[in-house]
């Protein structure tokens, strides 16, 4: 636990007041299941018009955080979503918030046309014509039941419904788990091309970091119930650097306190946080770390 805290080098200001226009503001967000804290005084903020990746190892509290945001679970601490309290104002909140929690959560007995009719009936911000346009691009048939669909088709239907809802916040929890690469690519491509704009915010968790890295505008790492890194992608490139160091400069590199060090083909790859670029360039070739490498370095020792 103490090692984990030491690793939490990235500062997240716990006492910052909610930024006006923040879509999500959480301060001291805590959720306990028995003795274990799934969320442990987590602080974070999400602003409008961003695509935020919430990344963390299994059991870090990702899903609990999303459940709290969606008003599916009780919690301690402060949390406001679009200015509403998810515990008390859930129905009002869900007019503005959509979520796809996991693949294949559509009821198996429902048909495509029943699902569309129902959402059109109960959701004031649903645009049926838009939904039909999305569905027309797929092979889905109006009378087809969910139980007759593949996982990929179920997600297509769910996405067509969700993208036809003019919501301000879309929450995606492992939305492409178990899908083949064609469906995965299509999923994120549709979101970017047909859905996302500056008035919308997307919060996504996934283990397939590489696939969404290029579409994210912001990144949050969560570990042991705490948000240990919250940054936008531009700042990430300025703050973190990966340096390819020859063996003879390795000691000099270590002196600069790298976050992580690994060996590839006899060269050391060092990951630095907040070390001036000029200093690093003397050690070797500097490049932007991938989110996956940063993640692995940050989460070192999580399962140990």
């Amino acid at each position: 636990m103490s090692a984990a805290s030491d690793n939490a080098v990235y500062d997240v200001d716990a006492n910052a007041p909610a930024t006006p226009g923040a879509v999500i503001h959480a301060a001291g967000l805590t959720k306990r299941y028995g003795n274990t804290a799934a969320l442990d005084r987590a602080d974070f903020e999400v602003s409008a018009g961003r695509i935020v990746g919430l990344i963390g190892p299994n059991g870090a509290g990702k899903t609990t955080a999303l459940k709290a945001i969606l008003g599916l679970t009780d919690f301690e601490g402060e949390l406001s979503v679009l200015g509403l309290d998810p515990r008390k104002q859930r129905p009002a909140l869900m007019r503005q918030v959509c979520f796809i929690a996991d693949v294949a959560t559509l009821p198996r007995w429902i048909t495509v046309s029943e699902a569309v009719d129902f959402v059109a009936g109960v959701h004031p911000r649903f645009d049926r014509a838009r939904c039909q346009r999305f569905l027309a691009r797929t092979k889905l048939q109006p009378r087809q039941k969910v139980r007759q669909m593949s996982k990929g088709m179920i997600v297509q239907l769910h996405l067509a419904i969700v993208m036809a809802i003019d919501a301000r916040l879309l929450v995606l929890d492992e939305p492409t788990l178990g899908l083949d690469i064609l469906y995965r690519k299509q999923f994120y491509q549709s979101l970017l091309e047909d859905y996302f704009d500056e008035n919308k915010t997307i919060l996504v968790t996934t283990h397939q970091v590489e696939e969404i890295e290029h579409i994210l505008t912001d990144l949050m790492f969560i570990r042991d119930g705490k948000v240990v890194l919250s940054t936008d992608m531009d700042a990430l490139g300025e703050r973190f650097a990966e340096v390819l160091v020859n063996a003879d400069r390795a000691e000099a590199a270590r002196a600069l306190k790298p976050l992580d060090e690994r060996q590839v083909f006899g060269k050391g790859i060092f990951l630095f946080d907040g070390v001036p670029r000029a200093q690093l360039e003397q050690l070797g070739e500097v490049r932007r770390p991938s989110v996956a490498d940063l993640f692995v370095a940050t989460m070192k020792g999580t399962y140990a």
Binding site: L70, P91, M94, F99, A101, D102, T105, R108
Partner: peptide, 17 residues
């Protein structure tokens, strides 16, 4: 049943009390 097959998450994603 909808908790068992997790479709409760879909119903709960709609603005219904």
């Amino acid at each position: 049943d909808d908790r068992k097959d997790r479709s409760v998450l879909f119903w709960k994603s709609l603005p219904l009390s």
